[in-house]
Amino acid sequence: MEQRHNYYITEKPLDPSPLIQQVIRPEAGAVNTFIGTVRELTEGKRTVALTYEAYKPMAEKKLEQIVREIETENKDSRVAIAHRIGKLDISDIAVVIAVSSPHRDASYRGSRYAIERIKEIVPIWKKEHWEDGSEWIGDQLEQTAYSVDGPEEGRT
């Protein structure tokens, strides 16, 4: 079962509660939860739905890597990440990140790091559906083209 892991890709609707429960523990004094939802308006254009596609085995490996990077940087942090794929409607939850730590600062930082890193190295793609068409979206970080040798790895 995918839910046994603290990182997974799923086609089912996401519920933040189990992810929060996975990182709560007596040592923690803070749990930061990031919930990414489907936005209706992007630069004035109305989205009617999104489709997410993943290269699932690699995406789960990369989520695991992000968890490991955060838990290596902050040894007392615990991280759980889930990303939904398939067709999502407006306000559906696309991603949940839960980070616990003894004090709040590390949990905020870990959460921020995780979402930025997802947008760099996790093979998940979003297709926007509008009233008048649809398009696969790439490069949300608005960087220049990727190096053909891949993104920078192991950054913390």
Partner: peptide, 10 residues
């Protein structure tokens, strides 16, 4: 082998 165009998850 997999081709990975710019990702757009999150």
């Amino acid at each position: 082998v997999a081709f990975i165009p710019p990702v757009s998850g999150g």
